[in-house]
Design a protein around this nucleic acid. Structure first.
Lengths: 186, 186
DNA sequence: TGTTTTGTACAGTTTTTACTGTATAAACAG
DNA sequence: CTGTTTATACAGTAAAAACTGTACAAAACA
């Protein structure tokens, strides 16, 4: 690891232990971000690396295959948790963590939430149209109307929720959320 | 399904199709809530059921084992997405969905986020103490101090992020979030 | 109390996901 | 252009998760 060769091994041990605690804690909790424990661990490793890392360095540190490092780091890049960086002279790809966790957090949940929102909202609306058409077709069928009204009410309530979620996501994407819930207390 | 026997089979078909689209859409997106597709599907089934359901009814509708229904519905109850309800006369357990999706959403993410927050914050603080101690022990070792400062800065930035997340979760739990991002636009 | 019904623990099976090693395509240096 | 290095596609294997059926314990009823 980077400049740790300038200090005593006793000191290094303490630092490594302190880092390891955090890295493993990250690894455990990264399932929240839908990533596996070992990819979470990889993230933690990159977090404390003070320079960009190559796939071979990761492979060595993680004691895993290069293929796993390649797919793992790609996942992290897709989630914008890690960035690919360029360094002249090196023909290896280099990666480093995105240090802005506020950004990472809002990127991740914006992405996931919006994906679910779009699919669900589209289904809800399509079904609502069909039920409304059926309703207009048999306006005097009270049994039918009762059922339809129940379903349409549920759909409307769901749509109401998704409209709210849409605005919440907007507040993440525009960073308005940091006005509403400030990064630091005054 | 409940009162669907009072209407023509042609009408029922349209309703079932409309429901099915939504249920399957839910099933697909429920992985966001860390639940499997079939449990998501079960949730969707319960969503359109207009009365509480027993395990046996679920098993029949889902064409799955009763054991799976038992574990599946238990997962949903743990996540507060489904409630166990009591009905005199029946000695079977009955379940129905929590219809307040705002509540479901904030319960789920409060729970998950807070769990991760507590574990990570605790590791970060513990490691920070150790690094600070090491720093005070060798105040003149510039190589060491450089490394320590870098690590401590990272830890501080992470702590800053978690403090923010803590306040965000608070706003979910106190429902203050609905003042900041209102459920309905005026 | 004994009898019946209901939910779940547990072990075994199937399916899915994570991971590895090799083979190959793409990128680069000379 | 040729030779070398690097990342990844792919097929196979190992590990994990989802699901099932049986067997049993807890609860409800008579």
């Amino acid at each position: 690891m980077e400049q740790l060769n300038n200090i005593s091994s006793e000191q290094e041990l303490i630092i490594q232990k302190a880092r390891k605690r955090i890295i493993e804690s990250m690894g455990k909790n990264m399932e929240l971000y839908g990533i596996t424990q070992s990819i979470g661990h990889l993230y933690g490793l990159l977090f404390f690396q003070n320079k960009p890392m190559t796939l071979d360095e990761m492979r060595e540190a993680m004691e895993m295959s290069k293929t796993s490092m390649s797919t793992g780091v790609r996942t992290l890049v897709d989630l914008k948790m890690v960035n690919k960086v360029w360094e002249k002279g090196s023909r290896k790809d280099l990666y480093e963590v995105e240090m802005d966790w506020f950004q990472t957090f809002s990127d991740y949940f914006s992405l996931k939430w919006r994906k679910a929102l779009e699919i669900n909202l589209s289904s809800l609306r399509k079904s609502k149209v069909e039920l409304n058409q059926l309703s207009q077709q048999y306006p005097d069928d009270t049994a039918l109307q009762g059922i339809l009204q129940t379903d349409i009410n549920k759909i409307d309530e769901a749509i109401r929720y998704y409209k709210w979620l849409d605005r919440l996501i907007d507040s993440f994407e525009t960073e308005e959320i940091f006005n509403l819930v400030p990064k630091d207390l005054p």
